[in-house]
């Protein structure tokens, strides 16, 4: 385990503010997947999600001096930037035009899930097939959710953020987060029961 892996986000941020790129690189290694997942769940596009990841870290790096540790965790701040970037892309005129002319991400699946997301325990073929089907159904159900519901649900279940942190990332109240997650769950359960 390297030196940087043992440091907390806060220690890495302090080091980065001191001018060390190595500290910030460790933050990039640590949070790239989370930023990508949030961007991908909102944009539905691999290429756009990659752009968002790059832009998010670039902005974070440039504005690190403005980040206030007493107000939020670094990850929450970073995901807030990522969500805003993603929403801007989704609502951009250029993107709408590309979708209108059917020229965006041809042939690309909207969401990808790892092929073997289950625990390392050995599974028999029938169980694996059942699990795979379950994941495919969930993937379809997730795609049918409105962006805000999907984002709130994934920030909870995948990034394990608290409702307070999700509210901060999405710039909504905690009660809105409760409502978004509840409706998302109800809708997915309803879709999977069909």
């Amino acid at each position: 385990m390297g030196l940087f892996e043992t440091l907390s986000d806060q220690e890495l941020v302090t080091g980065s503010k001191g001018g060390s790129e190595q500290y910030f690189s460790a933050l990039v290694d640590r949070h790239t997947t989370s930023v990508y997942r949030v961007a991908r769940s909102i944009t539905g596009s691999h290429e756009e999600a990659e752009d968002v990841v790059q832009e998010t870290f670039l902005r974070a790096f440039k504005n690190l001096g403005m980040f206030d540790e007493s107000k939020s965790a670094f990850k929450t701040w970073l995901l807030t930037i990522a969500r805003n970037q993603s929403v801007n892309i989704v609502s951009s005129v250029k993107r709408k035009a590309l979708i209108f002319f059917g020229d965006r991400d041809k042939g690309e699946p909207e969401l990808e899930f790892s092929s073997n997301p289950i625990s390392q325990e050995p599974q028999d073929a029938e169980t694996m097939l059942s699990i795979k089907q379950q994941f495919q159904m969930m993937e379809k159900a997730l795609k049918k959710l409105p962006e805000r519901q999907r984002t709130a649900l994934l920030l909870k279940s995948q990034e394990n953020l608290s409702y307070d942190e999700i509210a901060s990332v999405m710039d909504v109240s905690v009660s809105s987060v409760e409502s978004l997650i509840f409706r998302a769950r109800k809708k997915i359960i309803g879709l999977m029961e069909r």
């Binding site: 790239t32 997947t33 990508y36 997942r37 991908r40 769940s41 691999h46 969401l111 990808e112 899930f113 790892s114 092929s115 997301p117 289950i118 625990s119 379950q134 994941f135 969930m138 649900l153 994934l154 279940s157 995948q158 769950r185 997915i188 359960i189």
Partner: peptide, 13 residues
């Protein structure tokens, strides 16, 4: 559902 979603990981190509 929570359990399943926690296991799902959107893979980065």
């Amino acid at each position: 559902l929570n359990n399943t979603l926690a296991k799902v990981t959107i893979s980065i190509p």
